[in-house]
């Protein structure tokens, strides 16, 4: 079993107005086999957490730590993190012209495993995984994400999740922009990856609808760069009914009562 541990994480970005702190002390522990949902309104820092775990250069960690089985993740380069077993399913996967999916998947798999995959079994594995995610076979010959629709890009992210078999998967708003059918297909993929191996999942979302298909054991509510509340799946149900208003209004009304 592996553990991804985030302790008192503070993260800033540079803006035209100067340095802005986005994460203001986040503490979170995810073990393989667990699914954690991170929910919250826009701008609360959910996606910043995802990008920081993956090592996007835009985000600067000012204090706190991220460790994977005790190893300092923040000291690792982006590719080292991926090879250590972290995977980020991106919110906006970029198009990489001139690089075919086939070439990309094989290159990445070889990098992660430290050796080239056996060509025969690999080809079949890719083909089967694509079929399960209902991705057309001809996508293998197309350039990475080039001309794919929003939904197709998300499926291809989950395809990689299933093929690369990470220890921890961070899904950054994988559900946004998906219709119901695509949402089901994508969720099934995540559930398969979860069932197949020892994977911990950090599911970032602002809608509760994906939680109908992927069942988290833990729910964390992000507000203004911090975890405002956490609990079990029942917390998600409550959010479905009440929304985020009470977190946003909460601080104001408390001040009002004291006055």
């Amino acid at each position: 079993m592996s553990t991804l541990e985030i302790k008192d994480l503070h993260v800033s970005i540079e803006t035209e107005q100067g340095v802005k702190e986005i994460l203001k002390g986040v503490t979170l522990t995810v073990k393989t086999g667990e699914t954690h949902a991170i929910m919250g309104p826009n701008g609360s820092g959910k996606s910043t957490l995802a990008s920081t775990i993956a090592g996007h250069p835009r985000y600067t960690v000012t204090s706190g730590s991220i460790t994977l089985d005790g190893e300092d993740v923040l000291a690792m380069s982006v590719d080292e993190r991926a090879r250590a077993g972290l995977f980020l399913a991106m919110q906006y996967p970029v198009e990489v012209p001139g690089v075919t999916m086939t070439n990309f998947l094989r290159t990445a798999k070889a990098a992660i495993d430290g050796k080239a995959p056996a060509i025969r079994t690999w080809t079949k594995e890719v083909k089967d995984a694509m079929a399960q995610l209902r991705i057309d076979a001809d996508f293998a010959q197309r350039n990475v994400n080039e001309g794919f629709s929003g939904g197709e890009k998300k499926r291809v992210e989950i395809l990689q999740l299933e093929l690369f078999k990470p220890k921890f998967a961070v899904l950054d708003e994988t559900d946004s922009g998906l219709d119901v059918d695509a949402l089901k297909v994508v969720s099934e993929g995540v559930n398969r990856a979860h069932a197949a191996g020892n994977m911990g999942t950090l599911l970032i979302t602002h809608y509760t609808r994906i939680l109908r298909y992927i069942k988290p054991e833990f729910v964390h509510v992000f507000v203004d760069g911090k975890i405002a509340e956490q609990g079990g799946p029942e917390l998600a149900d409550r959010l479905e009914e009440e929304g985020y208003d009470r977190y946003l209004a909460g601080a104001g009304s408390a001040v009002h009562v004291q006055a």
């Binding site: 993956a54 090592g55 996007h56 250069p57 380069s77 982006v78 590719d79 993190r81 991926a82 090879r83 980020l88 991106m90 996967p93 970029v94 990489v96 012209p97 001139g98 690089v99 070439n103 990309f104 290159t107 990445a108 990098a111 992660i112 350039n143 990475v144 990689q160 690369f164």
Partner: peptide
């Protein structure tokens, strides 16, 4: 593009390999 580099590196591909992958792809056309 740094975003291309990030995407490929986030899949475990080392920076030098990622760069070559993109340039090779660009000129291969």
């Amino acid at each position: 593009d740094d975003e291309h580099l990030f995407y490929l590196m986030a899949r475990g591909i080392p920076e030098d390999v990622a760069r070559r992958l993109v340039v090779r792809g660009f000129l291969n056309e």
